[in-house]
């Protein structure tokens, strides 16, 4: 049913070329996720280069999708939430590809591509809510920027959480003086620590600016409905956790494994705000969106 809804959505919203590119990109990211995970777990059988080639091709297809959407007549691009989330995924993919080109790190692709795949899964699952009759998505540029920035920061935190998991596993193995077979391709503790720190430093401003833009997108009167929205609450807690980690690292109060555990705690709120609460409390979501649409 979901596939039918998505199919009808893509047929209604875009032309044949753009729909083809979109499907190629989504399929490609899923394939890249599988290949990169296989390369991590079975390094002797699957090379990570295959995942990277697929990832580059998928990113290209996604870029062509947006180029097509802006070139073709008909439904305005970025007039629905699906495309806004897809745009965030494109930014994230480009950021990952550029970063991996500048500083290659073993094993990170096994988390970056699954992150992109997860974004598309959620996007795919929520597509019906984006295309329901009478719903037009975030037409306002401010709201588009808010969604893009917040989803970008979530993507960055996904990467931070993945690096934190890798760090904790790798650190545990080193402390136990053991060498697990599939962890041989993991980056060093130093690299993972730097990656987590960079993600926090990059993700925190993205989330902060995303929040500010979100608040600005609502009028002062609508602010009263925001605390009732669990998604907003979870995001605020996430923001506070990340501020805490940042300050803790800066002052040296958080050291050893602790900051990485806190990154995982923060990521739980990403999941809650992006997936869990968004799906569980549709009513609260609808109230917020209704308030916005009424404006």
């Amino acid at each position: 049913m979901l596939a039918d809804t998505f199919h009808s959505f893509s047929q209604q919203t875009m032309g044949t070329f753009t729909a083809l590119m979109l499907h190629l990109a989504i399929g490609g990211f899923f394939l890249a996720a599988i290949l990169s995970l296989a390369a991590l777990l079975l390094p002797s059988r699957v090379k990570s280069g295959a995942a990277d080639i697929t990832g580059v091709a998928s990113t290209l297809a996604l870029a062509l999708f947006f180029a097509g959407r802006f070139a073709e007549a008909g439904t305005e691009p970025l007039s629905n939430m699906f495309e806004v989330v897809a745009l965030s995924a494109l930014f994230l993919a480009v950021a990952y590809l550029v970063a991996s080109r500048l500083k290659p790190m073993r094993g990170v692709s096994a988390f970056a591509y699954p992150a992109l795949a997860v974004i598309f899964i959620v996007d795919y699952l929520l597509a019906p809510t984006f295309v329901r009759p009478g719903h037009h998505g975030p037409e306002e540029p401010l709201l588009v920027a808010h969604v893009v920035l917040v989803i970008l920061s979530y993507g960055v935190y996904f990467l931070a959480a993945a690096a934190a998991v890798m760090y904790l596993l790798q650190e545990r193995q080193i402390k136990r003086h053991k060498e697990a077979r599939f962890m041989k391709d993991f980056p060093s503790l130093e690299s993972l620590r730097k990656l987590v720190n960079t993600c926090i430093v990059v993700g925190l401003p993205l989330l902060s600016v995303g929040f500010i833009l979100g608040f600005l997108a609502f009028s002062r009167e609508d602010w009263s409905s925001l605390p009732a929205n669990p998604k907003v609450l979870a995001s605020m807690v996430l923001w506070l956790v990340l501020i805490g980690i940042y300050l803790g690292r800066l002052t040296g109060l958080l050291h050893g494994r602790r900051p990485f555990y806190w990154v995982l705690v923060g990521f739980c709120f990403v999941i809650l705000s992006y997936v869990g609460l968004g799906l569980m409390s549709v009513r609260a979501q609808q109230a917020t969106h209704t308030a916005l649409e009424a404006r």
């Binding site: 790798q170 080193i174 993991f186 980056p187 060093s188 503790l189 130093e190 690299s191």
Partner: peptide
């Protein structure tokens, strides 16, 4: 080799 698991560079 073990040192390299802790330090990249």
């Amino acid at each position: 080799t073990f040192a390299r698991r802790v330090f990249e560079n």
